[in-house]
Design a protein around this nucleic acid. Structure first.
Lengths: 358, 358
DNA sequence: CGAGGGCTTGTAACCGGTTACATGACCGGT
DNA sequence: ACCGGTCATGTAACCGGTTACAAGCCCTCG
């Protein structure tokens, strides 16, 4: 501790300056009025004579004055910005959540700051620093610990948790997992599959944990035990790796994957090794990303954009003090049956395809 | 103009406050020192007695003080944040660019603000406002006009253009388009296709314009004329719409699409209508998104993450005043031959597949 | 013992806005 | 002519930091 701060840092970069340069005082001088009047004209916060107003507006235009959001934020005590924190940004899931969030937040007149923690140790500091720049924060999945959330929340920072179990008195939004996983697993059982494995790392995401537990519950209800679980992150690469592992230990009848990328990687690798999907092994994914449609992957669709958008709206309410009671929203999912889960009636498939592409 | 500002706005929301509340003055009082000393301890910008330092650090910990980035930014004249502006956020292309950008910017210690203009009229104002919150800006594609870019650039705001032709003395990064489109088109010609159409709206993206012109050049070199062009945005939906149009006017031998989503939508719709791809018509895409691999789409891969990351690095250099000469970087692309462009040697395909999935 | 110098610390100005309060002009009524 | 009230505008404090400069302390050297 002591030795950290007893050295003096260099002055670093040759002091940069905020561009633009023209301030409210320049405008005031140029228009021959006080800065208060300029502010009043621009914010329309009090009556100003028509002639004065015009003089000020002319000066604003002449000097191309743009009020500094910084000065504003400092004086007003608000940022007109909010943040969203991801564990990671890769993959279509996060991209779609962000898309929905940004769109809604933009509509509500707020700038959006993003941060992905990449599982770094410095995550708490990064989030704390971000917290100082925004009026509210959306936190996704397993980004930081409950302690930090509690700390920020106690400071009075509005927070919405997304795809993370509720903690303390904080709003949350998520898509349904347990029941959906149970339904998906039941579907596989109905196909006659009996030896089922789950692929995904429950420790790395609350969603995965819930999906895994729904999976287990469905098996238990059928009097079955899960085949040896396989760990794995969330990428196609890890799906392919899992394929090699499974081939070693012996293929189960079906593999329920924590997300589509894992499933797609798994399917591709299994087929590349000369085995058939769903013939030798059935596979399911989760999320219904674009590639899933083209790969014929059976999966569970969750409303990713809507998750982001809803989080943005809930956060906005909270920030404006109209949040009311703590809310915990759970959005519905939809089972999307395609080819990788096993044989279906021919007609079923045709109907589905027609619907899908109109 | 006059009537816009002669009404007084309501006070709006009950004045919110920035959370946290504990300021450097609180810490100073708690530790029995001046605010200057607190600042010095935290920034390690001057020597401070060990005992004083410890007292200050103890107070900082006790009060859980987090310096306001706002106050800092105002005093330092810098934000430690930069922005990136998208025309739109949907689709894997933007997501990947953002991913690369955020990762690199985070590494460089900068917060990231994002904005998508969605083609709104207010885009210039939105970008100007964003400009006041950041030390530098990356602008993607056709987001705002050259005037606004020039205006911001003249103010001294560091800017990097991404996937947008160079304008004025501003850095730019893009992936190669013209030559790549020419090569892709030549590949189709080598298959024996003679009547080729281009699908995409050249007015809506500089990239598309260049791809279209490379396409046209290759045809001209072969003494051919393009089949009636089809307009279309960038989504699968518009690809499907184009399929219906084409079927009306008569299918060409091949369709070169401005991006993968268009191509995927087109292929799916054509097949749903009972025609074969590539049998009746060959189709190519652009970007090599994940779904393209699973759909067997012939396409051109561009290094999307690297585009974002490089833009972040160039912007950082510019902000630190080490940018030097204006740079225009053009990254290489790669032609990815799969199934939708027509029949190949069987061996070729097998080799490719093996490579792809190891 | 006093001057000089190095080191630590405090004071106050500043960054760019917002706004409470004070001021002064102008109006109408008695 | 004077008073009171309304309205437009200016003055200055404030938001939360950074930092130039001044001041005070202690030590050393002549």
């Amino acid at each position: 501790m002591a030795d950290v701060s007893d050295r003096v840092a260099e002055p670093a970069v040759p002091r940069p300056t905020i561009p633009s340069g023209v301030t409210i005082r320049d405008v005031a001088a140029h228009a021959g009025v006080s800065i208060a009047t300029v502010s009043r004209v621009l914010r329309r916060t009090a009556f100003v004579t028509a002639t004065t107003r015009d003089r000020v507006l002319a000066s604003v235009a002449d000097l191309r004055f743009i009020p500094s959001p910084l000065g504003r934020a400092l004086a007003e005590g608000r940022h007109a910005a909010n943040g969203i924190v991801f564990p990671d940004l890769s993959g279509p899931y996060y991209a779609d959540v962000l898309l929905g969030y940004e769109e809604e937040a933009g509509e509500l007149g707020r700038s959006v700051l993003i941060l992905s923690t990449h599982g770094r140790d410095a995550a708490p500091e990064m989030v704390r620093e971000l917290a100082g720049r925004v009026d509210g924060l959306v936190l996704l999945g397993r980004t930081i610990s409950d302690d930090v959330i509690a700390e920020l929340s106690e400071r009075g920072l509005p927070i919405v948790l997304l795809a993370r179990p509720a903690t303390g008195a904080v709003d949350s939004v998520k898509a349904e997992n347990v029941e959906s996983a149970r339904a998906l697993t039941a579907h596989l059982l109905a196909h006659g599959h009996r030896e089922l494995a789950f692929l995904g790392d429950a420790d790395r995401s609350p969603d995965t944990l819930e999906r895994c537990s729904g999976f287990g519950a469905a098996l238990a209800a059928a009097g079955l035990k899960p085949a040896a679980a396989v760990l794995g992150g969330f990428s196609e690469e890890e799906g392919r790796r899992a394929a090699h592992e499974l081939l070693h230990t012996g293929l189960p009848d079906a593999v329920v994957c924590a997300n589509d990328e894992l499933a797609l990687g798994l399917v591709a690798a299994i087929r590349a090794m000369g085995k058939a999907v769903p013939g030798d092994v059935a596979v399911t994914g989760w999320d219904d990303v674009m590639a899933a449609r083209y790969a014929g992957l059976t999966t569970v669709r969750q409303p990713m954009r809507e998750l982001g958008a809803l989080a943005a709206r809930m956060l906005d309410l909270r920030i404006r003090g109209e949040g009311g009671q703590v809310r915990h929203e759970v959005l519905r999912t939809e089972l999307i049956v395609r080819d990788t889960c096993g044989q279906h009636q021919q007609t079923d498939q045709q109907v589905r395809q027609l619907e899908e592409y109109r």
